[in-house]
Write a protein that binds this DNA or RNA. Structure first.
Length: 571
RNA sequence: UGGGGUGUCGCCAAGCGGUAAGGCAACGGGUUUUGAUCCCGUCAUUCCUAGGUUCGAUUCCUAGCACCCCAGCCA
């Protein structure tokens, strides 16, 4: 971040906000549980990029570890090699760090525990609590029962311990075909909780694993792996989302039936729903694969990589996560909360610059042709310590097309009209004397005159000029491409589409507007990738890091300025 | 109609028996060389509903209602 001021940035963050999980931990601590330790973990599956929903979980888990002087492990839940890749592992590590959180030592993997997991499975078998089942997937589905009817016991359920041990050992050594056998927990096929109807613990899959290679053809399931991984790491509070609530009896069952000292407490909270976007990894993957967006880091994506590229700061995202809170209630957070948090953060730290997005040529007829001036403009109206920069000024400048109309449309209109005056930000007051029109009817040029006695002061005769517009000196202007982003979906809940339609039907076709011929003030020639500025009267813009050095620089609009004018019916 | 959850302002969310915090949004007003920022003010006699307990209930009890999740060899 350019001109970052740590103190200023830090002030936008708040003191720890209490939530029901922190209250539970307080109670545990007060009761002397876990010898006063608080250990959490963030357990992503490396099958996609991290998004804003993960940010909520990261801030929760790492935030609690920080505030309770414990620690939080980053642990990849890598038990399904078919969907996981090293690229995702790398992106996740990068994004967690970028968000501002760090783990001790190396990142951990559930696959680190494959051997121990296997030994614990043997222990379950020895107790008669797990068996090798040869039913097909289809058979297993039909015998599982329904929500209201009990399931039917598998014919393989009563195998002897010796036979189960033999079979399971041979499953590991690769004697059986993929999918031909699974290891199942022997619990209760009539349980009203379907997760307890003899759930699968292990399946056979000959897939190269990104961490363990071809060492295993036997992979453990999430419900079996997660509690043991947590326990092996000494996790005290295992935080997950609501849909795992009815898996908790299984989580506890596993730990209650093996020899292990630690028994973490699983606590569930509701996942984040953000209006006008989606946070389903499956759907985000589809947007990328089917090229609805330009990649996981497309600035329209709710991924941390996309937000970073768009210009959102980690501080703003953390503050947002503080503000949405943590509860068990289903929620639907308005985009304006996120946007306001980003604006608030950027307003404080971003230097101001001027940029003309839709250029309209202006000639100042009474300004001497051979004259040039170097004006001085403060980088930030409220923070003088951020310094100032120089603004060239001459007879020819660019202003934005939206800042001129021939005739005043209403009495509160403050921009330039023919015969009217307006203040050029940081410069003089000009009057529009005439305008030229092209064959198409489009205005091609404005002929204006300036009041030389209005630099840094109001007119001596006391006349009031209300409007202020931004501009860029023509000769030294820097060419740029500017990309304006709008919400990716056209409705608050993109899942809500007509019968038979897919969520992609809700994609906003105007989510990206590219302006290829924009002019930035001269000082921006020295900007560098990733820097964010406020383009006055337009919004916050971040110089795109992915653009090649020799091309015209690309700027991504992070967020617009609040605009109470257009909200009232202005344009 | 099985099991597990949740219901406090348009959105998020405090509150844990003592008489409804805060943020966002919205709406007024002031300052302003960004229609930005900033400042000031307004915004739930009411907490899903109905009963009950109590001097007193959003908080306790009972009965309803609404919504979400679960039948992957995904996580």
């Amino acid at each position: 971040m350019n001109q970052a001021n740590e103190a200023a940035a830090a002030s936008s963050e708040r003191q720890p906000v209490k939530n029901f999980i922190r209250h539970l931990i307080d109670a545990d601590l007060a009761a002397g549980k876990n010898a006063g330790a608080v250990v959490t973990r963030f357990p992503p599956e490396p099958n996609g990029y991290l998004h804003i929903g993960h940010a909520k979980s990261i801030c929760l888990n790492f935030g609690i570890a920080r505030d309770y002087r414990g620690h939080c492990n980053l642990r990849f839940d890598d038990t399904n090699p078919e969907k996981e890749t090293p690229e995702f592992v790398a992106s996740i590590e990068r994004d967690v760090n970028w968000l501002g959180f760090h783990w001790q030592g190396r990142a951990l993997y559930a696959s680190d525990y494959f051997e121990q997991l296997y030994q614990f499975a043997l222990e379950l078998i020895d107790q008669g609590l797990a068996y090798v089942c040869e039913q097909s997937g289809e058979e297993m589905r039909t015998t599982r029962g329904t929500l209201t009817e009990a399931g039917v016991n598998s014919p393989y359920r009563e195998r002897s311990v010796a036979e189960n041990r033999d079979l399971f050992t041979r499953m590991r050594s690769g004697e059986f075909a993929d999918g031909s056998r699974v290891l199942r927990a022997k619990i209760d096929m009539a349980s009203p909780n379907i997760n307890l109807r003899d759930p699968v613990l292990y399946r056979i899959r000959r897939t190269l694993h990104h961490q363990t290679g071809s060492e295993w053809c036997l992979y453990p399931m999430y419900d079996y792996t997660h509690p043991i991984s947590d326990a092996l790491e000494g996790i005290t509070h295992s935080l997950c989302t609501l849909e795992f609530e009815d898996h908790r009896p299984l989580y506890d069952w596993v730990l209650n039936h093996i020899t292990i000292a630690c028994h973490p407490q699983q606590i569930e909270f509701s996942r984040l729903n953000l209006q006008y976007t989606i946070v389903s990894k499956r759907k985000l993957t589809q947007l990328v694969r089917e090229k609805y967006v330009h990649g996981w880091d497309d600035p329209r994506m709710p991924t941390l990589a996309g937000m970073r590229r768009r210009g959102y700061t980690p501080e703003a995202i953390r503050t947002f996560c503080d503000r949405i809170g943590v509860t068990k209630a289903d929620n639907s957070v308005e985009m304006s909360l996120l946007e306001n948090t980003v604006r608030e953060d950027l307003n404080l730290r971003a230097s101001r610059r001027m940029a003309v997005l839709k250029p309209l040529r202006v000639v100042i007829s009474n300004y001497p042709e051979d004259q040039r001036e170097q004006l001085t403009a403060a980088n930030h109206p409220q923070r003088p310590e951020l310094g100032s920069r120089t603004l060239p000024f001459s007879r020819e400048i660019w202003i934005d097309r939206d800042d001129f109309v021939p005739e005043r449309p209403n009495k509160s209109f403050k921009r330039l009209v023919k015969g009217g005056e307006v203040r050029l930000r940081h410069a003089y007051i000009i009057r529009c004397d005439a305008y030229e029109v092209e064959s198409e009817g489009e205005i091609s040029r404005l002929i204006c005159s300036y009041d030389a006695d209005t630099l840094g002061k109001n007119p001596a005769d006391g006349r009031k000029v209300k409007g202020v517009i931004h501009w860029v000196e023509a000769e030294e202007a820097v060419s740029a491409e500017v990309r304006l982003y709008d919400r990716l979906f056209d409705r608050p809940n993109p899942e809500q589409v007509a019968e038979g339609e897919h969520f992609t039907a809700a994609i906003n076709p105007a989510s990206l507007t590219t302006l290829a011929h924009c002019y930035l003030e001269a000082s921006l020639a020295a900007s560098s990738a990733g820097e964010t500025y406020q383009f006055e009267r337009e919004g916050y813009f971040c110089r795109d890091p992915e653009t090649t050095a020799d091309a015209v620089a690309v700027w991504n609009r992070t967020v617009t300025l609040r605009d109470s004018w257009s909200e009232q019916g202005g344009d």
